[in-house]
Design a protein around this nucleic acid. Sequence first.
DNA 1: TGAATTTGTCAACAGTCGTTGGCAAATTGT
DNA 2: ACAATTTGCCAACGACTGTTGACAAATTCA
Lengths: 186, 186
Amino acid sequence: MTERKSDRTKSAIRTAARQVFASVGYERATIRDIAGVANIDPAMVMRYFGSKDGLFADTANFDLDLPTDLGDAPDRAGERMAAHFIAVWEQDDSGFAVLLRSAASNPVAAARIAAVLSEQLLPAVVALVGPGEAPQRAGLIASQVLGLALTRYVLSLGPVAAMSREQIIASIGPTLQRYLYGPLTP
Amino acid sequence: MTERKSDRTKSAIRTAARQVFASVGYERATIRDIAGVANIDPAMVMRYFGSKDGLFADTANFDLDLPTDLGDAPDRAGERMAAHFIAVWEQDDSGFAVLLRSAASNPVAAARIAAVLSEQLLPAVVALVGPGEAPQRAGLIASQVLGLALTRYVLSLGPVAAMSREQIIASIGPTLQRYLYGPLTP
DNA sequence: TGAATTTGTCAACAGTCGTTGGCAAATTGT
DNA sequence: ACAATTTGCCAACGACTGTTGACAAATTCA
């Protein structure tokens, strides 16, 4: 029997943890809260994930999963990147909300975001524009894209949260396009 | 004597609070920490500010103080806004770092940022482009500008933190310019 | 069926947090 | 100089946190 009974509760804990971490952040989320949402005993969290940090490390994980063919239509790369980011964020099982909600006050979350930038976004940018100016260009893209996620999904600032996906893509896309291929004064 | 002795310690507490809140965020900052930095007793914080929330409310306050003559040279408004934001953030007595560090996990801080957007940024944008599309345009500006602050000053992401002020302004300025006057597909 | 392992529950520990009240020292105002 | 107020320090309270260990119930395996 490869399906143990504990796998059910383990994944229930994971789901509850993602929800609680994403909505109140690491510091305000308590193990008792998470256990309550998952309808299990707080001690189960410790048994299966070792500690609160262990649970967070398990939960705060996500792949950017950028398409590899952005270079096929370079003049639409910015627009396609914008659409991809929104698509990734709006699937709620992605651990992105967890990370961003806690990044400002939790060093582990901040380090993970930095890792996503350097290990996933940067290589994609290098593939498009070469290694020379890629770090700055990737950094600028990150600033716009994380800012959008912060204002739209974390802070829910009125106007930004109210815009449609299409409007967001049409507005942000050209910005990313310029950060990829536009001038970069040194 | 209009200068009471308590004003010294009161401002020492304020300075220490700004420093601690800005570097670890509201939840991780303890009154004992702040009192330690200010070299006073934790009870003094309670006496002069009532509670931790009271101290935070007193500390997390800042004025955007946007120039009023942006409309005099509309083609440089984006660039001047970018330069102004950077100038405001890099004076460390501005409570902006305090707000942004805590906004993702502290509702009070989040509400204050929303208030700055709607009471200070939005009117400036209305003055430039009229009331019709101003909310969306202000929201887009906020997304880029908060994203830059987050990546550069809070997360200190390598490439973004390493860029010079001039390079940042030259890169972000045109983005803000387009968010002000560029097309906005509905 | 019987023994061994897994899964779950409960109560409690130890530490930290915001907060409070009492009391000594310093300062103020007359 | 004396009384009143302000300023500061100290110890402690009560609540909440992550975490642990003991023990019962359920499941697995022979």
